[in-house]
């Protein structure tokens, strides 16, 4: 049944019966405690990803690799990060693969991809909590959308380093509120970790910049927390 499902997967496309792939879904569960079978499953999935299967088939593979993917899947997924059609689904897997190699792949591709795909990679690094040193210079990227994404990612990471990166960024009027939002996310984490002094410094810095009423109210609230 599993072999038939993989055979069907080679030509799987939109509109076809999804149930032909059910044996692969079932194998995800049944191979959990069988490392050899799980490895075999992963290698068959990777082979599909590297072949000439339709977009829908490779979309499906990325969904499964989100659950079963390991470092062994990373090179095939990394190769798709610059693919306009499949970059998101490659991140769908890479973002959730816990091994460091998945994050390293995102970091390697960050300087190579552009536009929307770069925003996607930035977003995935933020979710994984990685890549602060690479995100920091992007706060000054001439493309406002890239700088906005980098700020949001740093806010998501919310580490002391991320907070410093945001604090040292040159002001960009169009993005002031986004940068402030990310800084406040960092301050909240600092406060929760017992670094009240550092957190207060963030709020004071924001207030010094004469922010609009929404950020002012939020920073004043943070200062009292």
């Amino acid at each position: 049944m599993l072999d038939q499902a993989f055979e069907a997967l080679k030509t799987y496309d939109y509109g076809m019966d999804r149930h032909v792939l059910d044996p692969i879904d079932e194998a995800v569960v049944t191979t959990r405690d069988d490392p050899a079978a799980r490895k075999d499953l992963e290698s068959k999935l990777v082979a599909i990803l590297q072949g000439s299967a339709p977009r829908d088939a490779r979309d499906f593979v990325c969904r499964v690799l989100r659950t079963v993917g390991t470092a062994a899947s990373v090179p095939a997924l990394e190769a798709l990060l610059a693919d306009a059609e499949l970059s998101h689904m490659a991140r769908y897997a890479l973002e959730r693969i816990p091994e460091a190699k998945a994050g390293q792949a995102l970091e390697r591709q960050l300087p190579k991809v552009t536009g929307l795909l770069k925003i996607g990679v930035i977003s995935s690094l933020g979710t994984r909590g990685e890549g602060v040193s690479l995100l920091r210079p992007l706060l000054q990227d001439p493309d406002e959308a890239i700088a906005r994404a980098a700020a949001k990612a740093l806010g998501s990471i919310a580490s002391a380093d991320a907070s410093k990166a945001l604090a040292s960024a040159k002001a960009r009027p169009a993005l002031d509120a986004v940068f402030a939002d990310a800084s406040m996310a960092c301050a909240e984490k600092l406060l929760a970790a017992g670094h009240a002094k550092d957190a207060k410094a963030v709020y004071q810095r924001l207030l010094k910049g004469n922010p609009g009423p929404v950020i002012r109210a939020a920073a004043e609230r943070g200062l009292k927390a």
Partner: peptide, 8 residues
């Protein structure tokens, strides 16, 4: 789950 770019 990862969001499709540019949504974050």
């Amino acid at each position: 789950r990862a969001r499709r770019q540019p949504w974050q």
